[in-house]
Simulated assay, not measured.
Amino acid sequence: MIELKRSRKPQDVPPSLCGQKLIEKEQELIDSVMKVRSGTLKKVEFKDSYWGKAKAQLKKESFNKCAYCESPTAVVAHGDVEHYRPKSVYWWLAYCYDNYLYSCQICNQAYKSDKFPVSADLLTEPDIRSILAGKLAIDPLAQTTLHTTFQQQLAAEKADLPNPYYEDPSPYFIWKVDDVLKEVVIAPNPAHPDAERVFKAVNDCLGLNRTELKLLRYQVFKNFKIVKLTSQRADRFSDDLIQMAIDRIAEMKDSREPYAGMVRYFDSIM
């Protein structure tokens, strides 16, 4: 996982998820919840076509990779608009743009699903008897101060799963190589006081040490190791080759590259 940045430019935010359009969607949501509470509807009606409008921008912001496992999705999968806080629990955040990120189907559907461990009390849901549409969450184009307040309210819950849009996940983790099994695993950083808690969440909710990931990461690590060792042997290789190796390391650490978080870690210790 690497840190991501959410664009607040009006041209990047789907118009259907802000302003008056968002208010209309929240009113639909409130009406649906009220019908469920009154017994006239079996379950809350969520419309995936609403959050589907966000996929293109979210995918761009996560560099065509899953925001959780950093695997590329552009070639082999469509990817999902993932609700960081699951809509089955946090129904009022179903159409909240700030609750979305781009995820591969395996992290989202096979592992995370409705899981969302927290270390404090769950957020209190809005009182539908008094809440007004437009007040359920936060307009993505609202003032910065309102976003800060909104994030502080969410932070009180002490979510165990890091949100790469809200914090840099990298300090929680280290990476370990097994050259016999040809795997690279993610592990808790013993120097971070919250690492064990966060690691358990990503392991349980996202399966970040699933076999396929460990093997793929090893291939990237092996390539990185070759260019890293090459860059350190000025006594053996030409200046041009050394520079090529240095340039390739910079490329592999770039956010656009798969498993950049892992490469950054190994570059810092090798």
Rank of each mutant, 00 (worst) to 15 (best):
E125R: 10
F46Q: 01
A201M: 12
L208A: 01
G39P: 06
K5P: 04
R85K: 14
K222I: 00
A245G: 08
L241Q: 09
D98K: 14
P72G: 03
L136V: 05
Q27N: 12
V177W: 03
V118F: 10
R6S: 04
Y50S: 02
F63V: 00
R217A: 03
P193Y: 07
I226S: 02
V89E: 13
C69R: 04
R233L: 14
Q57R: 11
K214Q: 06
K135G: 00
K253N: 04
E28G: 02
L216E: 10
P10N: 07
R217W: 06
K65P: 05
N64P: 11
L22S: 05
C66V: 13
Y166M: 02
G261F: 08
H83I: 06
V184Q: 00
A67Y: 07
T211K: 08
Q152I: 05
Y68H: 10
P164C: 05
D204C: 06
M270N: 11
N223K: 02
A245V: 01
L122V: 03
E196H: 11
A195V: 01
V75H: 09
F63H: 12
D254P: 04
M1V: 02
D247R: 13
D267P: 00
W175E: 01
H192F: 04
D160N: 14
Q219L: 08
A110N: 12
Y90C: 06
V81I: 03
T40A: 15
E212R: 02
K42E: 15
P126A: 09
T230S: 03
Q153E: 15
H147K: 13
A120I: 01
S268E: 04
